[in-house]
Design a protein around this nucleic acid. Sequence first.
DNA 1: TTCTATACTTTGACTATTCAAAATCCATGA
DNA 2: TCATGGATTTTGAATAGTCAAAGTATAGAA
Lengths: 228, 228
Amino acid sequence: MASRTIENYLKQLWLQQQEARGKFVPMGKLATLVGVTAGTATTMVKAIADSGLAKYAPRAGVRLTRAGEQLALHVLRRHRLLELFLVEILGIDWSDAHAEAEELEHVISETVLERIDLLLGHPSVDPHGDPIPSSAGKVEAPELCSLAELQKGNSTVIVRIADQSSEFLRFAQASGLVPQAAVVIEHHNPQAGAISARPDGKQPVMLSMAAAAKFLVRPCAPTGRRKK
Amino acid sequence: MASRTIENYLKQLWLQQQEARGKFVPMGKLATLVGVTAGTATTMVKAIADSGLAKYAPRAGVRLTRAGEQLALHVLRRHRLLELFLVEILGIDWSDAHAEAEELEHVISETVLERIDLLLGHPSVDPHGDPIPSSAGKVEAPELCSLAELQKGNSTVIVRIADQSSEFLRFAQASGLVPQAAVVIEHHNPQAGAISARPDGKQPVMLSMAAAAKFLVRPCAPTGRRKK
DNA sequence: TTCTATACTTTGACTATTCAAAATCCATGA
DNA sequence: TCATGGATTTTGAATAGTCAAAGTATAGAA
Ligand SMILES: [Mn+2]
Ligand SMILES: [Mn+2]
Ligand SMILES: [Mn+2]
Ligand SMILES: [Mn+2]
């Protein structure tokens, strides 16, 4: 029903709405995410709003309607199942899977999708630890904290990486900072704006707070210490 | 490089050229194959010719250049490898694989394609027995004869089905007339324009000459008899 | 309150692809 | 030779997306 272009707008909108729940996504932000100029985004968003998939408030931004969210979740389900499929079954590199899935997500039929889901054993997370929406359009949104929030000496397990760029993913993999990996915080320098994390059986890795914030972990403070 | 639309035109052109080697494909025929009006085909073909992928002769037809053939063969390779992958790995129905591959063939990257090729063990034919072009763009074109050309009492093996429509494929599968199946010609009535073929271990099947011609076999006349 | 930088919207134009309908060509048969 | 009918080409218009550039609104700074 929705064109591939519209599917991309909806998906980015949904992802962005997760960041700031309930708020309107500004046009400039959406344009950047989709990779078009602001004027193009305005035009497309008006069309999307006309078809009832979003609410558009001029100069304020856009927000998905329930129908828009459902459609976005179906696209996201295809995207994430495909990512896992590419990595697990075809052996595609972790860092390339996202870009490949970005195209495939628009041409996979429901039949093929369910076959993939079956073959993978109805997985709940993709290779980056991102949750896979159910075919009914449900996703769990667990509150996670990041490596940036832990204290020196804390140990934890990475569950999710919040950056899909292949450069970052290559760095993460090379460092051993992948989902399921246990890590210990070796140094924590809020002043220097950096921490040092050691993945189990690997060398310690220096991370800026910004980079550390991209590694979502659980449990948050397993050694019992708590902030403040 | 080439858009999905152009890839479709090139592929149909190549397929059609196989039927009548060396001849120009008439616009009306191409239009039907691609599923557009004749006027549209004329417009597109002129653009394709301008980019050097085909030779266009007004009122005579089109023919691919060497460059166009190479591109067409790459698309065909993607198509057939995907068909086999869908059937073998994902368990998609034989009769649906073609339609699915028709979309996927335009978005698969070279990397994913080679992974699929590897996973399938560098196969040489797709689920319908159609040869898969090599990555260098070569295809063998074995001269085959069809069930329609055999005599009563001949036995042979089906190697290829020359019809991609899901209705025909479903009928073929239900009858047991699939690639690798051994069959015996039980009756042969040129006057009635029909034959009866019995797949090994199955019930005999009545086929019009037109239908029988869609089943390509080898060897042609295994029992030593020859025509005329 | 007034000004202005920045974000946003509008406008005009362009590409790719398609269709319907009108115009044209040409092999054929009279 | 000449009229036709069918195939082909041309023309005009439409749709989906996109950009560049020009116009506009508004949160804050002054
Ligand atoms: Mn996409
Ligand atoms: Mn992911
Ligand atoms: Mn296709
Ligand atoms: Mn095939």
